[in-house]
């Protein structure tokens, strides 16, 4: 039995939106609780009665009720458009990330990796729009820091992804997972590290949060945002975590491949791995202080880029040898 095309499309779109709205909330709530317990606190305990599970929903309701303020000097249209631009790239990225084997992906694409890397890079435009349009020195400083950071870290991100694409011989994300073998964990370990760290910087998560740096820049490029638009930026941050975690999973951790029942439980393995990587993202945030702007650039150009290039050479050598 085959479904009519429109129904299939509707289901796939609904699935993407569900993932887009639910996973970031789960990650956000986990961050609340994990961060709290790592700091010897309890975190939210009252919203929803059971261990504050509804805290983010309550936050969302609060944000919706707030006044939508646009600064008088702001470039209003750009200012209002920026949150949407921040969200869309991640939404597009989720479309091509495979959840399980076979057809369990919203839109299988032969050059999925290429598309994902391209759209994730669009995020910088939203940051620049937000920072510039706010007409505020803090937002501008934050936006320029973000621009410098994202341009720098795009390179190791792409190089690390190129290594695994070269190893798999395909740009299709599903194809990469199918080609993946457990020993790649060792072979591609440097690339995994580079990709994860560059991904963290790409979504501006601590310790790479110099563009936001609340102790220096008020709240960086988000300073002037309130209410729903601010909430959208926050949502973008958490979708960013999900996307980077999912990409790390798919490219380096074998996606839906688990110890058993890959065909039936593939989606579960993927989600578990995404959850584990997201946990590491939160863990790193709690443990490490923010990098200074110069340290940030040093780390990228003198640390990640050489490692990524060396990994490329290694990948090519192994590929030629076998």
């Amino acid at each position: 039995m085959t479904m009519p095309v429109w129904l299939e499309i509707a289901i796939r779109v609904a699935g993407v939106f569900a993932a887009f709205l639910v996973l970031p909330l789960v990650v956000g709530q986990t961050e609340h609780k994990v961060m709290a317990h790592m700091q010897g606190r309890l975190g939210p305990m009252y919203a929803g009665r059971f261990h504050g599970w509804a805290q983010l929903i309550a936050d969302g309701v609060k944000f919706v009720q707030k006044e939508d303020v646009t600064p008088a000097a702001a470039d209003k249209h750009v200012f209002k458009l920026a949150p949407a631009i921040a969200l869309v790239p991640y939404l597009v990225a989720i479309i091509v990330i495979p959840l399980g084997p076979g057809d369990l992906v919203a839109q299988p694409l032969d050059m999925g990796l290429f598309l994902v890397l391209a759209v994730v890079g669009v995020g910088i435009v939203a940051v620049l729009m937000a920072g510039w349009a706010s007409a505020n020195k803090y937002t501008l400083l934050g936006a320029l820091r973000a621009a410098a950071q994202l341009l720098a870290y795009e390179l190791p991100l792409v190089l690390a992804a190129a290594s695994v694409a070269m190893a798999a011989g395909t740009l299709s994300l599903s194809g990469i997972v199918e080609a993946w073998r457990p020993w790649w964990l060792l072979w591609q370990l440097p690339a995994l590290g580079v990709f994860f760290l560059a991904g963290l910087a790409e979504i501006r998560r601590p310790p790479f949060d110099a563009p936001i740096a609340d102790s220096e820049l008020v709240f960086g490029y988000l300073t002037e945002y309130t209410g729903l638009r601010f909430a959208l930026f926050l949502l973008a941050e958490y979708v960013g975590i999900v996307v980077i975690a999912a990409l790390t999973t798919v490219l380096f951790l074998g996606g839906w491949k688990g110890p058993f029942a890959d065909a039936d439980l593939g989606w579960l393995w993927t989600l578990l791995k995404v959850g584990a990587v997201s946990f590491v993202v939160i863990w790193v945030r709690v443990s490490f202080p923010r990098l200074r702007v110069d340290q940030l650039q040093r780390f990228c150009w003198l640390g990640l880029v050489p490692v990524a290039l060396a990994q490329l050479v290694l990948t090519a050598a192994v590929k030629v040898a076998t």
Binding site: A36, H37, M38, Q39, G40, R41, L42, W283, S287
Partner: peptide, 11 residues
Amino acid sequence: TLKTMVSRAGT
């Protein structure tokens, strides 16, 4: 941080 997370919070 991991050790703090798995030990009981004093709150």
